[in-house]
Amino acid sequence: MGIRTEYFAAPTDEVAATALHTPGGPSEPDLRTDQPRFDAVAVPSVDPFVMLGGLAGVLSGRPYAEVTAHPRHGALVGSGGEEGPWVVTVSQILVDDLASAGPMRLAAAAREWSGDATPAVAPQVLVSALLSLGALAARATDERKGVYCWTSLTD
């Protein structure tokens, strides 16, 4: 069993929690408009707790324990029960770091982060993930939205 993760932008915790009602996740198209319900990016196997904590440490230079102690690091805003899905917050500090880092900094962070990732993830996978997350963070910042993670168990 694995996890499926989609990171997405929403204006409030309450709006982000509505992603629980879309079985396919926040990028699932609205049946009325055929447009995604949220600005979202799939980032396979990058959990919002341990792996994102490691990324926050790499980007900020702060210790893992400090970044994961932030009250908005992985704070639950919605739960579909024991088997999910779940929606959690991404700290604004990490969102700001992602939004302000350019592609070169994100690529360097991905290489450093891949060495710390548990389980190990190939650097090229993380580079792609960070570029997508950085672009999402920049759009969210421009639109004054927060970034969230929708997580679901997979078979």
Rank of each mutant, 00 (worst) to 15 (best):
A117M: 06
A140K: 09
D34L: 13
I93E: 15
V90P: 11
L133F: 06
A107Q: 09
F8K: 07
E6W: 04
D13S: 13
E66T: 14
V46M: 15
L133W: 03
T141D: 12
P44H: 12
L131Q: 14
T154S: 14
T33A: 02
E83V: 10
L131R: 13
R4Y: 10
P63K: 01
E143A: 15
S79F: 11
T151M: 14
A19L: 03
S114I: 02
V87D: 06
G146T: 04
S60F: 13
L106Q: 09
G80P: 06
D96P: 07
A10V: 05
P63R: 03
A129D: 14
V15D: 00
A107D: 15
A56Q: 07
E6A: 13
G24W: 00
R144D: 13
G80D: 05
P123M: 15
A117Q: 03
E6Q: 15
G146D: 05
W113L: 11
R144M: 04
T151I: 10
V95W: 07
P119F: 01
H73P: 07
L106W: 09
S45G: 09
T5M: 11
L106E: 08
L130E: 05
S128H: 04
L52K: 01
V127H: 08
G57Q: 09
A120V: 07
T5W: 05
E143R: 14
A135H: 06
H70M: 10
P119D: 01
V147M: 15
V46K: 03
D47I: 11
L126C: 11
R144I: 01
D155L: 09
L55S: 02
A101G: 10
F49L: 13
G78I: 03
L55T: 03
A75P: 00
V90A: 12
V43Q: 12
I93S: 14
L130A: 10
C149N: 02
L126N: 08
R32H: 08
G80M: 07
A109K: 03
L20S: 04
R4Q: 10
G80H: 06
R62K: 12
Q35R: 06
I93V: 14
P29Q: 01
V77T: 06
T141M: 12
G78F: 03
E82K: 10
T5R: 05
R62V: 03
T12F: 09
S45D: 13
R4H: 13
G24A: 00
G2R: 12
P63M: 02
G146N: 05
R62N: 05
V77W: 01
D97K: 12
A19D: 02
A138W: 04
P29K: 01
L136V: 08
T118P: 00
A117D: 01
G84A: 05
T5D: 12
C149I: 01
T68M: 14
G2W: 08
Y64I: 00
C149V: 06
E82P: 07
S100T: 09
L130S: 09
G57V: 05
K145T: 06
P123N: 15
